[in-house]
Simulated assay, not measured.
Amino acid sequence: MKKFGILIGIVLVCLCFSSFLVNADIETKKISLNGSTSMEKMINALKEGMDDQYPELLIEPQFTGSSAGIEAVFSGTAQIGNSSRYLKDTEKEKGLIENIVAIDAIVIVTDKHNQVNNLTTQQLIDIYKGKIRNWKEVGGQDLPIVVIGRESGSGTRSAFEEILELEEQCQYANEVNESGPIIAKAQSIPGAIGYVSLDVVDESVKTLAINGVKANETTIQNGQYSLQRPFVMATQGEISKQNEEVQKLFQFIASEDGQKIIRAVGLVPTTNEMSY
């Protein structure tokens, strides 16, 4: 009986060791991504969704900002650079390929007690330029406007300012490094206004319509909602020239399961823009 117990113990040890070797082999197949903090929710959801279909892949994302992600691809420290803005011509000239995997809306948020429900594009521009400084000027209560934005180098900030042609003109009271603090400040500071990705919006803040249009999948797809930008997964060279692991990631994104995940996090998928 004792010998039988010892035998069972040896078998279990062998199984555990075999499992360890299999897992070690799986972990060698890594995909490194770096970039936009706005894309964190989507990337983590895709990572989780791929676990069953591609257990041999280990996705290693970092979220340090769009420009940092692009530089990481150039330097070879990341295989994919996540950017929440279109690539610049200078970046494309260096061989970077703009693989657009989703379209995101930039949503304007305020505190829930704000009486304003809608802004025109020009009113929004004037608020961020500092020309409109009180909510009563746009039909709200007599309350100073506290303008919040992202830090320099943020893809969200670049896209917001480019869409509204506001580069180097915004009068920010606060600049923050992530979307979360913008939500927190919009929630807690009376009169605050900020911009964030649609997929990070929660019930703690109020979202404003732009020109009478609210952001949703339909208004983003048909172009009615004007504040929208791409989610780019940039590669050095076309997808077809990447290694097998990176190609599998993009194949999953283009699959039915991948499209469902992108929709589930509040984005609009666009696989037609990927360079297979």
Rank of each mutant, 00 (worst) to 15 (best):
G9L: 14
V138C: 07
G69T: 04
I132G: 01
S36L: 09
V116S: 10
V196N: 08
L12E: 01
R229M: 13
T120H: 02
G139M: 10
W135Q: 07
L33E: 00
E217K: 15
G95V: 08
A173L: 06
V268G: 06
G95R: 10
I8A: 15
D142Q: 12
K88F: 13
E40F: 07
L57I: 11
N23V: 06
Q221E: 13
G258P: 11
A159D: 08
I193H: 03
E273T: 06
Q169Y: 10
A234V: 00
K88N: 11
T271F: 08
I125E: 05
E238K: 14
I103G: 03
A24D: 12
I239R: 12
F63I: 05
I220Y: 02
Q169D: 12
L87I: 11
L15P: 01
A68M: 09
K30M: 07
G69Q: 00
K41M: 11
K2Y: 10
I127H: 05
N114Q: 07
I31R: 04
V73E: 06
V147S: 13
S179R: 00
N211I: 00
Q187L: 01
G76E: 09
Q259S: 08
G35F: 08
V268A: 08
G130K: 01
N134Y: 12
Y172C: 00
L87S: 10
C170A: 08
G140A: 11
I70Q: 00
L119E: 08
Q123V: 10
S66W: 04
R229C: 14
V22H: 07
T271K: 14
Q247T: 00
T219N: 07
V176E: 08
E168L: 09
R229K: 12
T270W: 02
G180S: 14
F74L: 15
T110Y: 07
L96N: 02
Q53P: 00
T156S: 15
N272E: 14
L87V: 11
K206G: 02
T218K: 14
D104H: 04
K248G: 03
G194F: 01
I103V: 14
L96F: 08
T77W: 12
Y128C: 05
Q251W: 02
L46A: 04
S158Q: 10
I148W: 02
E60S: 10
G5R: 14
S32A: 12
E98L: 13
S226H: 05
T90G: 01
G130L: 00
S67Y: 03
A234W: 00
M42V: 13
I8D: 04
I6K: 06
Q242V: 05
S197K: 04
Y225R: 06
T235C: 07
F160C: 03
I43T: 15
P181S: 11
Q79K: 11
R157K: 05
T271G: 08
I183T: 03
Q169G: 04
F20P: 01
E93Y: 02
